[in-house]
Design a protein around this nucleic acid. Sequence first.
DNA 1: GCACCGAACTTTACACTGTCAATTACACGG
DNA 2: CCGTGTAATTGACAGTGTAAAGTTCGGTGC
Lengths: 195, 195
Amino acid sequence: MAAAKTHHHGNLREALVEAGIALLSEGGPGALTLRKAAARAGVSHAAPAHHFDGLPGLLAEIALRGFEMFHAHLDQRCRAETSDDPFAQLMAANSAYVEFARCHRALFQLMFVEVEHSTPPLRLAAVRCYGVLQEKCRPLCGDRDPAAFESAVWALTHGYVALGMAEPRPNAPAQVPSYETLLRMLVRPEGEPAR
Amino acid sequence: MAAAKTHHHGNLREALVEAGIALLSEGGPGALTLRKAAARAGVSHAAPAHHFDGLPGLLAEIALRGFEMFHAHLDQRCRAETSDDPFAQLMAANSAYVEFARCHRALFQLMFVEVEHSTPPLRLAAVRCYGVLQEKCRPLCGDRDPAAFESAVWALTHGYVALGMAEPRPNAPAQVPSYETLLRMLVRPEGEPAR
DNA sequence: GCACCGAACTTTACACTGTCAATTACACGG
DNA sequence: CCGTGTAATTGACAGTGTAAAGTTCGGTGC
């Protein structure tokens, strides 16, 4: 708010990031442009240069924001899971993962493939997200190496999402099983809730 | 060869695809440009329009070629695996998967995220690649639903690769376990080669 | 042999992108 | 009230994809 009628924007950095995310969610990747973001924030096309290191800088900043949103989403869905069954807890986190990717396609893709700057805060935000899944994996790990088990769950989840978004869908659309089925396959040996 | 000195290229379509792949492997994504590909093929910048539906068309064609290379690579590595142990067979296919992605980063990314046209032959080529893994999964499926097991293996593998290429590496570089460890975790319940 | 036709390619032009340099408007400290 | 520096503007440039018009050539009908 505030920011009077001066040609100073107030806090442009923030506005540009939000404009970028909006563009991304409205028009997919490729709709995100320095100039369009600047226009949407109400400034001239060269203004962003004073706040980011060019387009890659803006992308990195948007990715950072994306990981923060991602973490918030994971966290919220985990808290919302009332059951204290370890599998239900893990499932809450991971279905939140899938849900976020579906709900923020372009942003998700940007976060995981299109960023090339990778500042320390960005890495940190990503690690925090990993931490959520890590925590939920622990109780189901059993006698396996925790790091390996976490990585497997993480890879399974991310791969499920990535393949689900890929355009030349390798497996026919109808026969793609639910995510839960896949996760159970990885966890089963220990938990045995079976049903 | 041949193609005389006429201003006709002979078969430009092919040359453009190969030029595109070369650009991709030399300068990563973003180095691939209609104009650069045209220049490398020795034609003017507007020539590609007569062979592809613009840039998306070229991308789709390159992706198709990518999947064909992918399939050839998977197939070759499978044949090269002398052991008839089912796990060794599956491992051969999947390590070929990982290897291909590492060896053709930009092309791999293009194949799985940057293509938006998705012609029928492209889908078919992708399905053929899926078929290789599918076949190797069957013997290790056990009492599980085959489709679910295949999908899990596929997702695990693809996720492992995708996360390995992602820039803001979510898990610290040192602690990332070998792919084989992850795959064993998914397969174990049946095979029990254990070591 | 020759005119013609259509496909392959070139030339030209345009809108749009990221980035840079020069310039202006403004808040603030002396 | 005047500098000074930050935030923004304007203008320019090279490069991008794409569309339209022009050119060159291989082949076909006569």
